[in-house]
Nucleic acid binder design. Structure first.
Length: 584
DNA sequence: GCCGTTTTCGGCCCGACTGTTTTCAGTCG
């Protein structure tokens, strides 16, 4: 059983304890252990065998026992005995907005409701409104919530969320009463997938009502789910939840910090504030009165920016991308935060699509976008012919594109388009173009886009065969996170990286350059083997100019050097990031 | 359940909003 599965079970134990109505701190301990475990990089089996697992902060006697049981036998008696109390469908019910552990457990005990279907039936029959603590409104909201769960994914890819957010954010930001405005939450932390959009603004009191109205009446709002004096919540028509919070300008940095999260980062920061005798909330610091615990007096530390807040609790400024309570706070205490790759470090990217295939922009628009960002090159890698779904290029269209690239390149100064192709790896490991056509490109990205259902051994064999093709420069999306919330296809990543190391190939990792958490172990392994990596958040949805905004090519050695596009600064920073992660 | 360089017991972040309630529990982030 792997680490992710074990973390899921610890989470489930935490939820089961909540359902049982146990001490909330007890259930939190399990959720916390799950999170800590997910960030552990060492081999779990070794940690269990040598007892080191107990030394990890957040993993105690009980959680270590569950982990140990799962690692050695694949089963945990503690987990299984808890599962007997509630049927599996109960977890689905908790995905419905407004349905927490108390309500779910109550409905199960009272009415034996144990699935979304049961719940829907009961709500439609009007059986819920008569129950204690429930009412007509709750019943309606449950039905709306069920509809939403069925209609939409609970997570959205960052560029879907960002597009939705920008449209409403621009309108709010342009209101004359706005003093400061930021997109917060996981969007600001640049997570790969986004649960909901958080907007934090500061404004004069007189304008608050109008700003709230502007928000709830925006054209992209499908439904208003909450509307108070300073906070409103809506569901946008793409299905994503969006919250607006309006505060006084002196509270803005605190609100921004609070709503950027992550929750675990906030909790840790607050405990640091407590050590100083303060409480911290979204409005500011307050001192805790001695003797009268919990009572607050006036604010003690004036902070104009987030930097000030971090300084006040003795920390270096922590970039939003690092705020996960995975060691960044300890690093900030000792001045050991890594310097992140920034957009200024990016000199170009290799995996971009144009409207020749499934991109949204023309070659010249893409080139113009890249130059506007100060980049030195852009690699065009449209799809190959078998990718009919993506309007893949035939041999004739490849020639046409090359001509157009040549014409454009002749006009550029200090900028260059590389003519590449994202060529499909066919089921048998062959590539989708002949050798002759392949040799007409500057470089080839070889990717799997079909037959994902092969078993691990066959998929690995297929990719290794493609890697051996001398024309292949980059293996596209090794991590294979092609679709939202899908973990990609089965393949032996270690074996592939070893092969790439032997053959001098580049591996593409689909993760935001500043957020390599999801894949950092495999990236670290690649670097340790001397394999060059190219990082993209998710090539499959990165089409059109969004490529230019998100994509990053990080070259380590080899073919890029020949073309004078080595990006040593970024590599250094990525390596620093890994060193930082490694010491956690 | 987990933690601790003042601690092995007594804390554990904190507030807005909703819907149900006559003062608050539950949910959410």
């Amino acid at each position: 059983m792997d680490k992710a599965q074990i973390a899921d079970i610890l989470d489930e134990v935490g939820t089961l304890l909540e359902l049982k109505g146990e001490n909330p701190f007890k259930s939190r301990a399990f959720h916390n252990a799950a999170r800590v475990l997910a960030g552990v990089t060492e081999d779990l089996k070794t940690l269990v065998e040598n007892g080191e697992i107990r030394k990890i902060k957040g993993i105690g006697e009980s959680t270590a026992k569950i982990i140990s049981d799962l690692v050695t036998t694949g089963k945990s008696p503690d987990h299984e005995s808890l599962r007997k109390f509630f049927p599996a469908g109960i977890f689905d019910m908790m995905k419905i907005q407004g349905m927490g552990p108390k309500k779910v457990a109550f409905l199960y005990k009272k009415m034996k409701i144990s699935s979304i279907e049961d719940l829907e039936k009961a709500a439609k029959a009007g059986k819920l409104e008569k129950l204690e603590g429930f009412g007509k409104k709750t019943e309606e909201n449950i039905l709306l919530g069920i509809e939403q769960v069925r209609k939409h994914s609970s997570k959205f890819h960052i560029n879907v969320a960002e597009t939705a957010a920008q449209s409403i954010f621009e309108v709010i930001k342009s209101h004359k009463g706005i003093i400061r405005a930021e997109l917060a939450g996981s969007l600001r932390r640049r997570k790969e997938t986004i649960g909901d959009i958080d907007i934090v603004v500061s404004a004069k009191k007189n304008d608050v009502k109008e700003i709230m109205k502007l928000f709830t009446s925006h054209k992209s709002v499908e439904r208003i789910t909450g509307e108070g004096e300073t906070k409103a919540s809506v569901v946008l028509n793409v299905g994503i939840n969006c919250d607006l919070r309006v505060v006084d300008d002196k509270e803005f940095p605190f609100a921004l910090n609070y709503f950027t999260g992550s929750k675990d980062h906030n909790v840790h920061i607050r405990s640091l504030a407590r050590e100083n005798g303060w409480t911290l909330n979204e409005y500011g610091f307050a001192v805790i009165n001695a003797g009268e615990k919990g009572r607050k007096s006036k604010k003690v530390v004036l902070c104009k920016t987030e930097e000030d807040i971090y300084r006040a609790v003795g920390l270096d400024y922590v970039e939003p991308e690092l705020r996960e309570d995975l060691g960044e706070i300890e690093a900030a205490q000792s001045g050991k935060l890594p310097k992140l790759v920034t957009y200024d470090d990016i000199r170009g990217t290799f995996h971009c699509h144009t409207n020749y295939s499934d991109g949204q922009n023309t070659l010249s628009e893409m080139a113009a976008g890249a130059q506007k960002l100060g980049w030195e090159y852009l690699g065009i890698a449209d799809h190959s012919k078998v990718a009919a779904y993506a309007n893949g290029l035939s041999e004739e269209r490849v020639k046409k594109q090359h001509k157009e690239i040549d014409t454009l390149n002749a006009k550029f100064k200090n900028f260059r388009l590389f003519n590449g192709s994202e060529v499909d790896i066919l089921t048998n490991g062959d590539l989708d173009f002949s050798d002759k056509v392949l040799s007409s490109f500057d470089y080839i990205v070889a990717s799997v886009h079909s037959n994902f259902k092969l078993n691990e051994a066959d998929m690995t064999k297929r990719i290794k065969k493609a890697l051996k093709n001398k024309h292949v420069t980059i293996l596209g999306h090794l991590t294979g996170r092609l679709l939202l919330e899908r973990d990609g296809y089965p393949l032996n990543q270690t074996e592939i990286i070893n092969a790439a190391a032997d053959l001098g190939k580049i591996i593409e990792i689909n993760a935001h350059p500043m957020r390599l958490d999801l894949d950092w172990q495999i990236v670290k392994y690649a670097i340790s083997k001397g394999v060059m990596i190219a990082i993209n958040p998710d090539s499959h949805v990165v089409t059109g100019l969004t490529d230019v905004q998100y994509g990053v090519g990080i070259a380590r050695k080899g073919w890029c050097e020949k073309k004078d596009i080595l990006n040593t600064r970024s590599v250094k920073q990525v390596e620093d990031y890994f060193k930082f992660r490694e010491t956690k």
